[in-house]
Write a protein that binds this DNA or RNA. Structure first.
Lengths: 336, 336
DNA sequence: GATGATAGTTAGAGCGCTCTATTCAGTCCA
DNA sequence: TGGACTGAATAGAGCGCTCTAACTATCATC
């Protein structure tokens, strides 16, 4: 019943265990004849190396641990695609840990992966405190994604949040808007640079005095609340830049409920380009982060660190792009 | 630099390596004095057991592998919540494999997990052929979720798809509809029992002759296409039951684009209750599967199998419920 | 005081692999 | 013919843990 071991293969092929090991590791110095004999024997017995034993003996796992804070967030799925693709390319396996949307869950997932002796770790959208992350980085290479960490020990991949915000604002300005409000992401990852980028872009366009930030927290309901707050404010902007698509969707719902049309009365732009944003009945204009690319880059950094190739620049930044859809347009000449 | 081993702890505590092992495994027959001494020594050295070595020696990993076909599908995230919760309860770790939305990806993920010697495996929404799954089940216990597998070797957890379809149709019938069309899920997992349930419920209500099924494939675009097909058919139904929320959302978009109001002109009901369905601006009536419960049950089955407790009923079925929202209503008296 | 029982502890042989050091079998050249 | 050299194969000591069997007290029992 129990699976065949290297010993069995060696016996079957009439060679030593060590030679089987060499063949399995694709070592060069093995004669073709023997190699084939071992391969045949292995196939005959249905042998598969025991990864546990291999990892224990070699002190390497060829595995990258990926901790995802929240599997509910579709944003991460695409990042994962990039990581998987990168891993397949350089012969690394990926194992996933679920952060369960909490700091403790995240910490536990990280511990589990360390216990599994992953060679390196990619932490996506971590909520964990920076010093905790740095502590992990002292044990194994760590790459964070979607959160800037100012540390030499930790590597990171981020989208240029400020530039994304600038793109959004510039797009609206280009359409003729000037009274543009921002629904922000509160203390969430990336919220603060997006907010800063918005302010900067407003100032650059000479409408800094019109800038206003309504508090949000990246959720749909906070977006709805923020929109209602704007409606009640007595001074409805002609355009809204939401810190992410989720809150934009919430705002959209609240506006519609009050008979405000988009983009007729108000233009709306989100951030992230989640799949729901592309949905036909919404068709939300938004800022896209090249998620797949980010995932791939993160994996590249991790592998490089494992293999001792110290990346010259451990903090990567990718550029966002504007995705034009149907929720933005010129401000209505009539005003509201 | 290298982490302390059991040997180090034993030396530090002045006991044998075996005793340290007993303490680490929380074995009962250890005197309190020694136990404390070992624990202290371990804490002093910052010792953490090497899971690799432990697994190798014990031939058990206390880990359940979970293969998720598609991380993009938010449906699975909640299932995962249930699995995680269940795992935490019975002291099992969860490790995830990404099926990458393809058969081969799924097969690879399964192989990887087997290599890691997970004690059992939960395969969520598998696309893999049944015989391939059965082959895996010969090696380790396998639980499928979201796909019925008629086999004694494979365990499964499913929602009562037929009943869900019945609930949807009965709801519409109750509102006064009789011309109810179904946008199905083609060959997707769960599509066929939902379709059958729809037909059965229509017949049961005495409107079997009005039943019609439009081909779909669980995607948003297929839902839109199906709705347009219905619009072109010349005989628009008063209600549509879509095989899942995604296709319902697609249909919604297409209907809106043609000026058809929901639920004014047509009532619309989905299936799955994905988070987007709850979104305020959509508020889709749908059928909910208790996903978290399903995940938990799947984990329970897996653990039971690992621990040798053969479940008396390896094929579990959970009951769906109707979630009433704003896309269904009485048919308009005017007709269209 | 010999005899078990029993609880607590330990020696030591694995688990299935890697990897260094070594042996072995051939060249090659003088 | 023999020594230096090279490529191929192997012996054997780990990797860090588990677990069985054996050992040592301790103590009640007859």
């Amino acid at each position: 019943m129990s699976r065949p071991t290297m010993e069995d293969v060696a016996r079957e092929a009439g060679v030593s265990r060590a030679l089987v090991s060499l063949v399995m590791r694709k070592a060069p110095n093995v004669s073709d004849a023997r190699r084939q004999a071992v391969l045949d024997a292995a196939a005959r017995l249905g042998y598969r190396p025991n990864v546990l034993a291999r990892n224990l003996a070699s002190q390497r796992t060829h595995t990258i641990g990926v901790v995802i804070n929240d599997f509910h967030n579709p944003f991460f799925a695409e990042v994962l695609d990039g990581i998987q693709a990168g891993g397949a390319e350089c012969g690394y396996r990926i194992i996933l840990g679920d952060g369960c949307r909490s700091k403790t869950g995240e910490a536990e997932a990280i511990e589990t992966l360390i216990d599994y002796r992953v060679d390196a770790m990619i932490v996506i959208g971590p909520r964990l405190a920076v010093d905790r992350i740095i502590r992990v980085a002292r044990i194994i290479p760590v790459v964070t994604l979607g959160r800037a960490v100012r540390s030499k020990l930790v590597m990171s991949v981020n989208n240029n949040e400020g530039e994304g915000a600038r793109l959004a604002v510039a797009h609206l300005i280009g359409l003729g808007h000037s009274d543009i409000a921002h629904i922000d992401g509160g203390a969430g990852a990336g919220a603060s640079p997006r907010r800063a980028g918005y302010i900067r872009a407003m100032k650059a366009a000479g409408v800094g005095s019109l800038a206003r930030v309504v508090r949000g927290d990246f959720t749909e309901s906070s977006g709805a609340d923020a929109a209602e707050q704007l409606l009640r404010s007595g001074r409805m902007p002609t355009a809204i830049f939401a810190a992410n698509d989720q809150s934009a969707i919430g705002a959209y719902g609240a506006l519609a409920a009050h008979g405000v049309t988009v983009p007729g009365d108000v233009s709306l732009i989100g951030y992230d380009n989640i799949s729901a944003a592309a949905s036909r009945h919404l068709s939300l204009t938004t800022i896209d982060q090249p998620r797949t690319v980010m995932g791939r880059e993160a994996l590249g950094l991790a592998v490089a660190a494992v293999e001792g190739v110290r990346a010259h620049e451990p903090h990567l930044r990718v550029e966002p792009t504007l995705v034009l859809r149907s929720t933005t347009g010129s401000p209505s000449p009539s005003g509201r």
